[in-house]
Design a binder for these strands. Structure first.
Lengths: 202, 202, 202, 202
DNA sequence: AATGAATGAGTTTTCATTCAT
DNA sequence: AATGAATGAAAACTCATTCAT
């Protein structure tokens, strides 16, 4: 007599992950209790353990879901853009948007994911790799088409783009100033393409 | 008649701060216990409380000491360099060196300092501001001398430099690959100055 | 679907309060630990915190329960007695009985309740007031009926009765001598009514 | 080379007892730390242990000194009064004064002395006995001279007087109202002598 | 499947007491 | 005699996790 189908089960599980995301991003991993999460999900704390073996696993699920979502989103956006410059700016724009709209999740990611034991080789690491490859692919294509200087180190660009935007997002968060996503993305793209050097001097 | 002078006292205090730095950077703030720190310092846990009123205070001390050290170091290095490009590369180089040599501390800083209650307007915030101004000053000077395009947003550059190097350091740490500080600094400086665009296309 | 009903819940809570009463009265508030109480109640220390937010709260609960019990008991006994003298003696008798049977609780009350922060205006204060008013009401009635000298200060009488019995109870406890409640109550009532002065001299 | 004589030694000891009295009475025994006491006495915390083997011993010393003082004071005052009624009122007056002026010490006494292990047969118990005997002696004398009804139980009177005044003092402390020592003493004496019964009815 | 009562190890912090100097 | 650094044994309280119902 299966009264509750796989559908309902998955639904419950999603509820719990959603609740965990909400509380983790608000309070941070350490300061969040399983009861906080359960209450937020409208279930008992015991039930969470039916779906997730530990608090850590729940974090993993939140992070994976986040990654999957942004990879899908950004891949799609970039796929729709045509040409090197447009693709690059699109990715930068969507990444800025992400950081600005999902700061809590990003912070959670940054502070926790890297301390996840066995990160190397983990599913999360693989997702991370895939996310990064969106940019890498754009750069490789750009190089092949002659838009990008062949001496440029793709990994360095990746660090500057993702690290720089992260830093920017935090600074804005702290100061409370709103961010104009389009404008900031344009500026970053421009900076990345041409650097800071004055043409007069160059 | 204190037989144990202020010297020994300060020494002990330094021992405890050093131990705290070591353990905090290895395990993170939340996962570190006062007993861990005390044991590392070779003292009892009770003694740590003679010098620091709380675990939080100890973190503050670690962070402040760190900031003071790097500000002094980088200001001095930059001060010795002559000319815009040299100054910029010097700062980037020293920042890379810092992140690579002190990754744990940087991570601690990033994950904890920003969640410090009352960060805005705090002593730490002021130190942060001062550290950032080293780069800002270089850029302003560079603009005045015509090396930097006037349309460049200094804060954006700051984000790209500090955020990018941070990201780079982390990636290297995770992968365990060694970093050639001089080479990486040169690459970053070059990237920052000229961007990624191919001259052939530009 | 809670399988363990409110009944069981209340039962547990009562167990813990009872255990707290036992240990507090034996060892005093400060010297009692939550583990002492939990062990006495046959539960873990963590569980006590499910029911009471703090050790202080547990004390409050013990005190309130005590007060409620004695107010109900004494009001009922006094209500059944007819006439001023009988009412007065009844209250004195029941108060003596209380002190003799519940000395530990009374001591707890005396030593702790008065140092309770925010005692003034608290629920406990209100209960205290109500307990005191049982005697006050008897005295007022006695005055109206001409049994009590109008110049008598009711509050003073209250102090003599409650304070005196308290003192007596303690002395007896220390010496370990049994107390004949009826006899002592009669003596106190007599003393209170007529004073110590010899009629021969009066 | 005895540089510091017994005199200075005794002086130090007195300083420490005085400091202990001040802090104990203000904060209570449990909440007072040895460092509080040492600081108040202007000495190091280690030194206190040269004079007193433990915190408990220090409490004992404070209590003994207090007892010795009030016994001497009250015995002297009572000794100067002439006649039963005057002696009785004098003792009551001085006891009220004591409670009102030294509330902290009295509270300390009440809350701590009775939990002193081995109170029975202790020096403090002996002092207590002696203090009580001041009143007993007055009553015995009063009986012999026909002022006091022979059926009166001296111990009961003692309880009413000491317990009653204690209760009164606390009530006043809590309410913050000032106490007119002379007036209150007169009222209590009157109540004790004549009781509350209306003459009209008696 | 679902609950939430129950556990107990772990955390920060305090403080009486000791002892090298 | 005097100091105060140092200890370590608690204590209050929290929370991930388990399990009877």
């Amino acid at each position: 007599m299966p009264r509750i189908g796989a559908e309902r089960l998955a639904h419950r599980k999603n509820d719990i992950v959603a609740a965990a995301r909400a509380v983790f991003t608000e309070r941070g991993y350490e300061k969040t209790t399983m009861i906080d999460i359960a209450r937020q999900a409208g279930v008992s704390d015991g039930l969470a353990y039916r779906y997730f073996a530990s608090k850590r696993d729940l974090l993993q699920a939140v992070l994976d879901e986040f990654y999957a979502r942004i990879i899908a989103h950004n891949e799609e956006c970039v796929g729709r853009a045509i040409g090197f410059a447009a693709r690059l700016e699109t990715l930068i724009r969507e990444h800025v948007r992400l950081l600005v709209e999902d700061t809590g999740l990003v912070r959670l990611f940054i502070t926790e994911v890297r301390s996840l034991e066995g990160y190397q080789g983990s599913h999360t690491h693989e997702l991370n790799r895939r996310y990064a490859s969106i940019l890498t692919d754009i750069l490789v294509e750009g190089m092949e088409q002659g838009f990008v200087d062949p001496s440029v180190d793709g990994r360095l660009v990746r660090d500057m783009v993702f690290g720089g935007i992260e830093h920017l997002a935090w600074r804005r968060i702290l100061s409370g100033q709103p961010v104009d996503v389009e404008e900031v993305a344009a500026s970053i793209t421009n900076l990345l393409l041409h650097g800071i050097k004055s043409n007069a001097q160059g």
